[in-house]
């Protein structure tokens, strides 16, 4: 109870401080450059050139502290030894190239990269197109969107049950094994099957991200001018042709943004792998590998090096994504 009260008070104080900051600085600015008197025009211009910096100031300061500083520090750390004190040059990078664990992570990450964004976007697009045509579409949409509300770890727990295996002669409680057994097959320890287990983990992220893709693409589909669809009907196109040749090309920009947004997420995938396999049985990924070296290997240098690799992979997609999203407007 006391904690709850404390939380409420600190929340109120935080919001209050923000309001006070914006209101106060604005007031002071208007006091220094009053919008009246003989220099009113000049004062308004000056105040307006300063105001954005006042309002953006706190955000810029926080971003610098929590984003830019860590990036620079990571780059520096990647040239240092395990404790971050001894300079080792490019030793971490040459280690990385020859390291089998890193290569496995990179390969798996690329697999994730090809499968998850494609599958999520594809299923999202199909779901968006189909739910727009049926009367209970909104219910279906809510159901498909719901996994978005579940944390990655929570989703992993759910899917651990799906992939669960019990010993011989015990009833299989895992959904997948129950189906396999019911069809007369042998139960499998799904998440320990090398190579294939990657795909079983990917299914979880696809399950989560399809809802995201569906919501964005559904909005885009609704933005298509109805007349272009009617014109295509008059031109004799069937529903599939209208979808593939008229609708999809018109929302191509949105599809690309959804695709790259999920791609960036996939490059950082961590929680699912940690919760499901912790990188065992050949399912390691970069983010989990970095985490491993940071907190288990206790090697800041190598960990930072892996972080740099992830960042370098994300940046170009990020830039393209932002450009594309701006173009859409």
């Amino acid at each position: 109870m006391e904690q709850l009260l404390l939380a409420l008070v600190s929340m109120a104080a935080g919001v209050g401080a923000c309001v006070l900051y914006f209101w106060g600085t604005n007031k002071i600015l208007d006091g220094i450059f009053p919008a009246r008197g003989e220099n009113a025009g000049r004062n308004i211009l000056r105040a307006n050139s300063i105001r954005p910096w006042l309002f953006l100031g706190p955000a810029i300061a926080l971003l610098t502290l929590y984003l830019i500083y860590p990036v620079i520090n990571s780059v520096i750390l990647s040239f240092y030894g395990p404790s971050g004190k001894s300079y080792v040059g490019t030793a971490n990078y040459s280690w990385l190239i020859s390291d089998a664990g890193f290569r496995e992570s990179l390969r798996n990450n690329l697999l994730w990269l090809f499968v998850v964004p494609a599958a999520s976007t594809f299923f999202g697009l199909i779901a968006a197109a189909l739910t727009d045509r049926i009367s209970w579409g909104n219910i279906a949409k809510s159901l498909i969107f719901m996994p978005m509300a579940i944390s990655f770890v929570g989703a992993s727990v759910i899917w651990k049950f799906v992939y669960d295996i019990r010993g011989e002669n015990i009833e299989q409680i895992g959904l997948l094994n129950a189906i396999v057994v019911a069809l007369g097959g042998e139960p499998q320890a799904w998440i320990t099957l090398p190579f294939w287990n990657n795909f079983f983990l990917m299914v979880i992220l696809i399950w989560i991200q399809t809802g995201f893709a569906m919501v964005i693409l559904s909005a885009a589909l609704r933005g298509i001018p109805e007349e272009t669809v009617e014109a295509a009907v008059l031109d004799g196109a069937n529903p599939l042709q209208i979808f593939m040749k008229i609708k999809v090309p018109q929302i191509w920009g949105t599809i690309a943004v959804v695709w790259t947004t999920i791609t960036i997420l996939v490059l950082k995938v961590f929680d699912i792998v940690l919760a499901m396999t912790n990188g065992q049985w050949g399912s390691q990924v970069l983010a989990n590998y970095m985490f491993d070296w940071m907190f288990r290997g206790l090697d800041f240098g190598r960990s930072a090096t892996i972080a740099i690799v992830i960042m370098v992979m994300v940046i170009p997609i990020m830039i393209w994504n932002i450009r594309e999203a701006r173009k859409d407007v």
Binding site: E227, E230, A231, A232, V233, L234, G236, P249, Q250, W252
Partner: peptide, 21 residues
């Protein structure tokens, strides 16, 4: 009869051109 087989063609107020073609 489906629109395409009626032997008609329509010009829309908003042109309704396919923007990607």
């Amino acid at each position: 009869t489906p629109p395409a087989q009626r032997g008609i063609a329509m010009v829309f107020q908003t042109y309704a051109l396919y923007p990607h073609m």
